[in-house]
Design a protein around this nucleic acid. Structure first.
Length: 413
DNA sequence: CTTAGGG
DNA sequence: CCCTAAG
């Protein structure tokens, strides 16, 4: 855990407690208690009012003397966590209380994987401003996500709601500010519950995530970076994971502290960097640059289906913005590709069951729930998709050979 | 930049 | 998931 002074981690609660928090509600900080539980309690406190949250989110930050203690504050965090997205996602999928919490939570969790986020956590001042920005962003959510609820996510709405009603719900309104305050608090609670579940994921993870959010959302598409890399040729293997555009702090950090980069790299980028490095060392021509493949969770598939049912096929940017707003790694193209695969899957499943079941058993990938596949098929018939041309023959048995070949090529991205 | 298609 | 072409 070298570079970030793990030994200092235990100091964190004291450090934080040492800050002036006069403006913060008293019962938020149970002054006694031990170490992290103190902090967790602060965030998990179910009864705390919005003042506490606002203070924490930076609205009261300037009163906390953060400026002078900033360095110590950030160093108190434990950066040794690994972006265990799968586990977290599992948790999030279990809690489908409301679509909002899911969305927000997703946002927090997704960007845990963003390496730059970790480095961002070194700069609390920027976080402070960014968090403020984030709060305002939430308040003024252009899509009214705070009020969003689809029939899939909201158990309260048992029946299917019409599109008109749905869009009405998503339209920003005057109450959105009030709602968002509560929602932020709720998401805080929810999120911190997960944080407490796994000690490897310290608060810095989420705090830094907040700081990053809303900065360069749509610009995060890798198109330009990829083409630039093509022209430039190759990259150093030591920074092989840096094929994606990074923020300033990242680059700077690599250059300055070389000795720490290695151990840090292992911790922060986990399988992603590991994969890239191993590949680069051997044959850099192979999958030189390939975004780390994230498995599509059933949750995401549901979101995709919802998005298509609401926007229609082809509006992938809209779908991305609304349903995958928090998932920075799902580009509109990714979403479209997934839909393509879903279509294929829906038809292939309809065609044959035994072969498919076997294949799934072998791949060990959880199958897409049948109801989802049904929805996919419905949408497919509803919205014509060019690919349906090549899928149409899925009904005849004459071209079964070609189909099986395609099935083999199919990857569950 | 966003989509559609093919790799 | 990547890459490219076309609008």
């Amino acid at each position: 855990m070298g570079p970030f002074e793990m030994d200092r981690a235990p100091d964190f609660p004291e450090t934080f407690a040492g800050l002036k928090y006069d403006s913060v509600d008293e019962n938020v900080f149970h002054s006694s208690e031990d170490k992290m539980s103190n902090m967790k309690h602060f965030l998990m406190e179910p009864k705390h009012d919005n003042i506490a949250v606002d203070s924490f989110l930076g609205l009261g930050m300037e009163n906390m003397g953060i400026g002078s203690n900033m360095e110590e504050f950030s160093h108190g965090f434990d950066f040794s966590f690994l972006p265990d997205y799968g586990g977290l996602d599992y948790c999030s999928t279990q809690d489908v209380e409301a679509g909002l919490e899911l969305e927000i939570l997703d946002g927090f969790l997704d960007e845990v994987d963003e390496v730059e986020d970790i480095y961002a956590s070194h700069n609390l001042s920027s976080i402070e401003t960014e968090v403020k920005k984030k709060v305002s962003e939430l308040d003024g959510d252009p899509y009214g996500l705070m009020n969003f609820s689809s029939e899939t996510y909201s158990p309260r709405i048992s029946g299917s709601i019409g599109l008109s009603e749905w869009s009405k719900e998503t339209v920003p309104n005057a109450e959105s500010k009030n709602v968002s305050s509560d929602k932020i608090k709720d998401s805080l609670d929810t999120h911190c519950f997960y944080a407490s579940e796994d000690d490897r994921k310290p608060l810095s993870t989420f705090i830094s995530s907040w700081g990053k959010r809303g900065k360069n959302r749509k610009k995060n598409l890798r198109n330009t970076a990829c083409s630039r890399l093509n022209s430039s040729g190759r990259r150093m293997s030591s920074v092989s994971y840096d094929f994606r555009p990074r923020k300033g702090p990242m680059k700077k950090y690599i250059q300055t502290s070389t000795e720490n980069t290695l151990s840090d790299d292992d911790q922060l980028t986990s399988s992603e960097s590991e994969d890239d490095i191993s590949v680069t060392n051997t044959s850099k021509s192979r999958s030189d640059r390939r975004k780390h493949q994230r498995m599509w969770t059933v949750d995401e598939v549901v979101k995709l289906v919802d998005g298509i049912s609401h926007f229609g096929v082809g509006k992938w940017t809209d779908i991305k913005n609304l349903f995958f707003h928090s998932a920075s790694y799902r580009t509109p193209v990714d979403i479209r590709d997934k839909w393509r695969n879903l279509l294929k899957a829906s038809y292939t499943e309809k065609r044959n069951d035994s072969i498919q079941a076997e294949e799934k058993r072998r791949s060990g990938v959880y199958p897409i729930p049948k109801d989802i596949l049904h929805r996919v098929r419905e949408l497919a018939s509803l919205h014509p998709y060019p690919l349906s041309k090549s899928l149409s023959f899925a009904h005849d048995s004459s071209r079964s050979l070609s189909i099986s070949r395609k099935k083999k090529k199919k990857n569950e991205y």
